[in-house]
């Protein structure tokens, strides 16, 4: 909670100072899903191709693709 950038670093993800980090503390019954940022050069890929690229860590928001 207090050091999200440090936790992401443990997963090998470095977040630059130019990026705003928003932490979501799920204290009620709302749950959130992660929509991974689209990798550069994938605009013409099909849904199947994209599904084959995505990883567990990207879907829980600790890695970029």
């Amino acid at each position: 909670m207090i050091d999200p950038r440090g936790v992401l670093q443990e997963f090998g993800t470095s977040v630059g100072d130019d990026v705003e980090v928003r932490v979501w503390d799920s204290t009620a019954e709302l749950r959130y899903i992660v929509l991974p940022e689209r990798p550069v050069g994938t605009e013409n890929l099909t849904e199947e191709d994209l599904a084959a690229m995505v990883t567990r860590n990207a879907m829980v928001g600790v890695s970029k693709l």
């Binding site: 909670m1 207090i2 950038r5 100072d17 980090v21 932490v23 979501w24 503390d25 709302l30």
Partner: peptide, 18 residues
Amino acid sequence: ELWGDEATAKDSVYIDMW
């Protein structure tokens, strides 16, 4: 506001509250 002046200026925490 949560962690003091040494925290980064732009980041935030969203908390669900009644």
